[in-house]
Design a protein around this nucleic acid. Structure first.
Lengths: 358, 358
DNA sequence: CAACAATGTGTGAACGTGCACAGATTACGT
DNA sequence: ACGTAATCTGTGCACGTTCACACATTGTTG
């Protein structure tokens, strides 16, 4: 029948149709869920598919549908962060699972240089993707401009305030920070400092805000130590500077576990003990927290879940079912941007103790 | 001319041809590097492209070329490892960069359950990808079977011995282990133990082998402590057990930084100092090494470079230029599998000191 | 100057699918 | 019995490319 030589051609919808004794159109309808397929031809088609081993050709389908079934995963961070930030990996895995379940592909775009920015713009403008998930965009990010201009369905992780209208998936950084700060207040601390990282992003700002709210009248602006990034080394340096300036602090809230781990090592190097002399708490519940000595009390952030939600949200926009998706969830609004906040919780470990009586 | 309403259609090759006053064929030739395009029409085409903002339609191209321009990145590990293993992230970034440079997409397939295995098999068999990069396959892995059966161009990271014929990118674990063990021998250690992780994979076996070679007659089988995985907690537990059994060891080689970090914490908890009482070395040069106190002497492994090489190797196979790619490199052969080994080097830090005179 | 190679160009036929349309069959109410 | 709606099916066209082929022009060689 067919030439038995050569690697063997893939079966097409024609082969299925011939085998099942129906027409292409019917097979196509079978696949696209349009009812109006009789039960007899339905089962004939099913047998034929199994027999010839048919798998729809994505390229042909995408061509006629003017779709790509591809979603971009854009990380605007130094590429090294991929290997260090535990959340990004979790978000990626979550998003990837959800997307492949729905027959979408995920393509990772890491922006690490100006050249990358250009490449990503090209990619977005070139219609290579149906949608995008954006992790850690900065304010005034060029990616944001392209997305709004090209009207690409997108979801942001976090919520930079300049992104009018673009949905986001976040955690409630304010509430989370408030609750972990409360953890310190509850055991009697009053001289609590914060190592406030990433103040150029919403997350950093919100974590500081939550801290301030919890502290209330106890807030001492001198104990706010801003540090550049969410990194170990910035935590180390920041803690050193802070403790030099204000040796009477009894507890430190570091706004990420990496920062907290850095701070913890700095504290130990100064000859102080954790938690007896200084309590330390982090944020993220990453390996940094469990790998520290002692292990750190921290905030658990559902990174996998955020990836899943972001994927769903993006697909919903692509397929025009955003409203149905949003309906059962409680959406909040930041400016014109709708979004959901996933719950976090405190993970108590061994880095918190009451302050020593002086 | 065109309907100004609606989102605006994407320009096609026809539009470029019309604008440049040539035919589709010429424009197509221009894009596919087939010479035989006159300089005059070449520049006319370039102007036209810029004017109409043309970007080739991937789906149409893939359809006619019977290609997908997609490479699978298969990780057969619990998904959590994505967020913990520093190498996987590096390999991913390296591969991703190289592939997008060459107009290929990378799709991540994480195998974390039996259901995932099935999905990946479908994906591979369904012709969704032109090639694959496989990270950490096990022996007798079903993915391997599918790849050989479907004759999908692939590259392995590492080299499980049962993969006849499939190229691999690795590091020379034996040489690397030998050189870091030598580092301990050089300063006078004799009672050196190894925390040998991952003995179900080639990397684990080879690292132990390198250790044994370097130790030579000093090798004491009682000081080989097998541990399950390359993880922090297994390092912790393994070190505890080892030091309980053999309190006279003066140095420990842990076969990954995570294991070494776990061991380091266990050692400290036993009241011993590093490196004064016990020297510790790791393997990977990951954040675990720099985040430890003291920082760990370790082996630097070029994970990003491995990703790049794996991508090149896969693309070369797809495009039939494997021999040219391999030519300038020194290929080694393991069974019938050709591969390259990337160089590693020792990163000296502060976790090694001579043994105390007894 | 004929013959032929090298260079440049246009055209028609695929590639495999979805969709709109038209046609066929059945079911149902009057 | 008839008209009409509901259900089911087949056909042609379009999607935007690439590729093989045919043709046109020029240069080179005997």
């Amino acid at each position: 029948m067919s030439t038995p030589a050569h690697p063997k051609k893939r079966a097409t919808i024609h082969d299925v149709a011939r085998e099942a004794g129906v027409s292409r159109g019917t097979v196509s309808r079978y696949f696209n869920g349009d009812s109006y397929v009789s039960t007899s031809s339905r089962s004939a088609i099913e047998q034929a598919i199994a027999k010839v081993g048919y798998v729809p050709n994505t390229a042909a389908r995408n061509l006629v549908r003017q779709r790509t079934q591809t979603v971009a995963f854009i990380v605007h961070e130094p590429a090294s962060l991929f290997t260090e930030d535990p959340n990004i990996g979790g978000i990626l895995v979550g998003a990837n699972n959800e997307l492949s379940e729905r027959d979408y592909q995920l393509v990772c775009l890491v922006i690490d240089s100006a050249r990358d920015t250009h490449r990503v713009e090209q990619y977005l403008r070139g219609g290579f993707v149906d949608g995008a998930i954006v992790v850690s965009a900065r304010m005034g990010d060029p990616v944001t401009r392209v997305i709004t201009e090209s009207r690409i369905p997108a979801t942001y992780i976090g919520h930079p305030p300049d992104l009018a209208g673009i949905p986001f998936i976040g955690i409630d950084n304010i509430t989370a920070s408030r609750s972990i700060t409360q953890e310190l207040l509850d055991v009697g601390h009053e001289n609590i400092a914060i190592l406030a990282a990433g103040l150029d992003r919403d997350s950093g700002v919100d974590r500081l805000e939550g801290f301030s709210q919890a502290m209330g009248p106890l807030l001492n602006r001198g104990l706010i130590q801003p540090v550049e990034t969410y990194s170990y080394s910035d935590g180390y340096d920041g803690a050193l500077e802070l403790l030099h300036r204000a040796p009477d602090v009894t507890a430190i809230f570091a706004t990420s576990d990496a920062v907290a781990a850095g701070a913890a090592n700095a504290i130990k190097r100064l000859g102080l003990r954790i938690p007896q002399d200084v309590s330390v708490v982090g944020f993220d519940d990453s390996v940094w927290a469990t790998r520290s000595d002692p292990e750190l009390t921290t905030i658990h952030q559902p990174s996998r879940g955020m990836g899943t939600a972001a994927a769903q949200c993006t697909v919903a926009q692509i397929e025009g079912t955003f409203d149905e998706w949003a309906a059962p969830r409680r959406l909040i609004h930041l400016g014109s941007a709708p979004g959901i906040m996933l719950d976090t919780y405190v993970v108590p470990r061994n880095s918190v103790a009451p302050p020593r009586p002086q």
